[in-house]
Simulated scan of single mutants.
Amino acid sequence: MGIILATSRSFSDGDLDLVARAAAEGHAIVRGPAHHELHDLAPVLAKADAWIAGTGPVTAAHLDAAPHLKIIARYGVGTEAVDLAAAADRGIPVTNTPGANADAVADHAVGLMLAALRLIPDGDRRVRDGDWSVRRGRELGAATVGIVGFGRIGQGVARRLSGFGPRLLAADPYFPAERVRELGAEPVELDELFRTADLITLHAPGGQRLVDAERLDGIRPGTIIVNTARPDLVDEWAVAHALRDRILAGYAADTLDGDTAASAGPLLAAELAERVIVTPHLGAQTTQAVDNMGSISLEDVLAVLAGREPAHRVQVAENAAKPAS
């Protein structure tokens, strides 16, 4: 019997019973903490044959503590938290789940756009305080929307926005310009997108800084930024400053630097509450996405434990910055 360590909180928490699926193949799922602290994981890593890993770090030290490990299956798309080189040195394949949560995140991004444009959270708060005064918003169809990163999620956003009718711009150095046009957007350079768009939605991989003070100095007053990708794409102090100066009209995000430890972060300041919307990593949290990520990661684990090649193997070069899928 193989031991499969699962450190994603939502693994097998959808409609599919993936624990039973593993058991049917003769393997046991053992849960571990999502933070991946080595002192907590070491006892089970010592026995684990496979690891379905959440967003926490997977380091060379973790791998040294796992002498029987045959595969690391990232429950999600991003692999920047995984030491791919260390895994390759030990002959351990790393997989991910490309596209599994793309529709869920694209839905959430559009929801945040509408919430920011129409001041929905602020309106709800004011009504609960007895304030029924009207604050005027803007229509999505009248906006120029800039999509940064035109992988699966960015394309999904473009498809959803086509029904609203905005002008769509897309910046992605890895995606063919002609294909961008075929999918209904205008290919532009990143700096032009920031100068031109009324609403900017981020779908690029982490490990780079795309929104900083210099770029914010060049945007159109009243711009809204939506981030359902990675917190390190954004200089949050620069964003807070731009919000206070009314250069930015709004910022909506599914992630903050430090996340649960970010209560003292600049974007959660009380005076910015009218113009900042933050959700706690809800983007991929749909039943369908959870089932997709879980089943894809588990099937790759089962393949490797049965001596087969996994379907979604990540190459070491993929740890470099490239469009998010």
Results as ranks from 00 to 15, higher is better:
I3D: 07
I4S: 04
A6Y: 08
L16W: 04
L38M: 09
D40H: 15
V44P: 03
A46T: 10
A46C: 10
I52C: 11
G54N: 06
T55Y: 12
P57G: 09
V58H: 05
A65F: 08
H68K: 13
H68A: 14
I71D: 05
T79F: 08
R90P: 00
A104D: 05
D107N: 09
A109K: 03
A109H: 00
V110F: 04
L117M: 08
G123M: 02
V127P: 02
E139R: 15
L140H: 02
V148I: 00
R159I: 09
A170C: 07
Y174E: 08
L183D: 07
D191A: 15
E192Y: 12
R195F: 05
L199W: 01
I200H: 08
R220D: 10
T228S: 08
T228N: 11
P231W: 04
V234Y: 01
E236S: 03
V239I: 04
H241D: 14
R244M: 08
A252V: 10
A253V: 10
A261N: 10
L282P: 01
G283Q: 01
G283F: 09
A284Q: 02
Q288T: 15
E299T: 12
G307K: 03
R308G: 11
E309P: 04
P310V: 05
H312W: 06
V314Y: 01
A317C: 07
